[in-house]
Amino acid sequence: MKSLALFALLLAATLSAHAKDSGLAYVSSEKDHAITLVDLKTLAVVGTIPTCKRPRHMQRLAGDTQLMVACSDSGRADLIDLATRRSVGSMALGDDPEVFDLSPDGTAAYVSAEDDGALNVFDLVTKKQRGSVPLGKEPEGVTVSADGRRVYVTSEVANMVHVVDAGTLQVVKNIAVGKRPRRFAFSADGSELWVTNELGSSVSIISVRDLAVVATVPFDVKGMRADDITPVGLTLSRDGKTMYVGLGRANHVAFVDVATRKTTQLVLVGKRAWGLALNRDGSRLFVVNGLSDDMTVVDTASAKALKTLAVGRVPHTVVVDD
């Protein structure tokens, strides 16, 4: 019996070790109701994980052993064990959850509820809803400040960023930005919050201290109309000097110098460049393309696309685990 118990402990430890740094990219596929697995060394698809209906945004939970997947058509989150690559549980999230962020201590999830026009807060320990904050129509992007005191939420219809006090769950300010704001990224020092404006062909930059827009970065792609430049996903380089912005239907990723707020490079990728993620050292940028059903891997040093591979129908989010 003791040997069996010891074997079980060793097995659990082994699985836990393999759960981290799996060497995979996980890509949610809205139409396939699955997560596609991509080997980061070979850049080849090595499997899929069935999940709930219309998986969209994903994040690793505290401890990096599970992946939380928001499924809009199921109204819940699927919890995927990264060691076994299987669903190990779920949590109700209400109607049409899309994007979420986690509290710094990993105990709460802040989820945009598009149909309800609200930010819903869930306890990740009890898997129960803690509260709800009414917002403008069609809230989408969500990000939590590093200290956990504020939650920022975009409202696509109101063209605003709502600033929510995480302690009181009250809106402390509404900030007007560009047309149809979507996603966020903080600057390296946390003083600026960059917001993509999908129908404004731009990014608004918010001063976190003043809670006001201090600059706008417009985008221009030769041969394309402004209406075709629809930025959504963005992520900051590891050195904090470059903001990578997916330009949606413009089928490019823009490299924006954070200091000068100027575009320095444009990289051609797939159709409707959407979700973005970097590997650990920042040498590769992974771009999911929602209308060409693929993902482009970009070498950030040379600003060149290395490979584009099919990753399921309507990919939404990529999480890199290296």
Rank of each mutant, 00 (worst) to 15 (best):
L169Y: 12
V172R: 08
G290M: 13
T51F: 06
V142K: 10
R280A: 10
S87P: 08
K20S: 07
V267D: 01
T143S: 02
D95H: 08
V153Y: 06
V217E: 04
G190D: 11
P134G: 09
G190R: 10
S3L: 14
L93S: 02
A188L: 13
G47T: 02
A188Q: 15
N120F: 05
D299H: 05
T317V: 07
A158E: 13
Y152F: 15
A254T: 08
T14A: 13
A185P: 07
V258K: 09
R272F: 15
R261Y: 11
A301Q: 14
K53Q: 13
T51M: 11
D210K: 15
G131I: 03
N197G: 06
L211H: 14
L278W: 00
R261L: 13
Q66C: 11
A188T: 07
L124Y: 14
R54I: 10
K31N: 12
I35R: 03
Y26N: 00
I35P: 00
L61W: 04
T260K: 11
V172D: 02
V157T: 15
G106T: 04
G75P: 08
A176Q: 15
V214S: 12
A77Y: 01
S87Y: 03
A303R: 11
N197P: 07
A185N: 07
A113C: 13
S155I: 03
D96R: 14
K173E: 14
A109L: 05
V253C: 04
G190I: 08
I205G: 03
K41R: 14
W194S: 04
D220Q: 15
W274A: 01
L199K: 12
V203Y: 02
G141K: 06
V125K: 13
F186V: 07
Y110M: 04
I80M: 02
G131A: 09
D96V: 10
V144M: 04
T107P: 06
D123P: 05
V171D: 04
P315N: 09
S74R: 01
T235K: 00
V253T: 04
F122Y: 14
R180Q: 14
E156P: 01
G148E: 02
D189K: 10
T42Y: 08
H162E: 15
F219E: 01
S292L: 03
P139G: 02
D81F: 11
N159D: 15
I35K: 05
K271Q: 09
P315E: 07
S16K: 12
T48W: 05
K271V: 13
T263G: 10
S72Q: 11
S302F: 06
D21R: 15
G282W: 04
R261C: 04
K307E: 08
M1W: 13
L119H: 07
V163A: 08
A176V: 14
G246A: 15
D21Y: 14
A5K: 08
R280K: 13
M58S: 03
L124A: 03
V27F: 03
V232F: 10
